Computed example of a mutant assay.
Amino acid sequence: METLTTAQARDHFADLLNRTSYAKERVVLTRHGKRIAAMVPLEDLELLELLEDRLDVGQARNVLAEAGEDVPWGELKKQLSLGQ
């Protein structure tokens, strides 16, 4: 995994895009020496989203099991911090 500054990434954006999409490389971007973002292949993002969805389902099941009864959707969203 390569680490580049945002300025370097800007100068080589097309190459980085090709490397992440075709070569499946991951690139970490830094600003002022701090890691701030990453360029990853789309498959990595899709896997991350799938894992997040599974965690959300697990949390929902736990809340329902703890309640032992029907929980209104609004209350469930509130308990899972999903907003209004």
Rank of each mutant, 00 (worst) to 15 (best):
M1L: 10
E2R: 11
E2H: 10
E2C: 09
T3W: 03
L4R: 09
L4D: 01
L4V: 09
T5I: 04
T5Q: 06
T6S: 11
A7P: 06
A7S: 14
Q8M: 09
Q8F: 07
A9H: 01
D11P: 03
F13D: 13
A14H: 05
L16N: 11
L16G: 12
L16S: 13
L16V: 07
L16D: 12
L17K: 10
L17T: 09
L17C: 09
R19T: 07
T20W: 09
T20V: 08
T20K: 06
T20M: 06
S21Q: 13
S21D: 13
S21N: 12
S21H: 11
S21A: 13
Y22N: 09
Y22P: 02
A23H: 12
K24V: 06
K24Y: 07
K24E: 11
E25W: 00
E25F: 03
E25S: 06
V27D: 10
V27W: 05
V28P: 04
V28L: 05
V28I: 06
V28T: 14
L29I: 08
H32W: 10
H32I: 10
H32L: 13
H32R: 14
G33P: 00
I36P: 13
A37D: 02
A37L: 00
M39H: 04
V40R: 04
P41V: 00
E43M: 01
E43D: 02
D44P: 02
L45G: 01
E46H: 06
E46C: 11
L47Y: 10
L48Y: 05
L48M: 07
E49I: 05
L50R: 14
L50P: 01
L50W: 13
E52M: 12
D53T: 01
L55A: 00
L55W: 06
D56G: 05
D56N: 06
D56M: 12
V57K: 12
V57C: 10
G58M: 06
Q59R: 15
Q59F: 15
A60T: 04
R61P: 02
N62S: 15
N62C: 12
V63M: 13
L64V: 06
L64P: 15
A65C: 10
A65K: 14
E66Q: 15
A67V: 02
A67Q: 04
G68L: 00
G68N: 11
E69G: 13
P72S: 04
P72A: 08
P72F: 05
W73C: 08
G74F: 03
G74R: 07
L76R: 04
K77W: 12
K78C: 11
K78V: 09
K78L: 11
K78E: 15
K78P: 07
K78S: 15
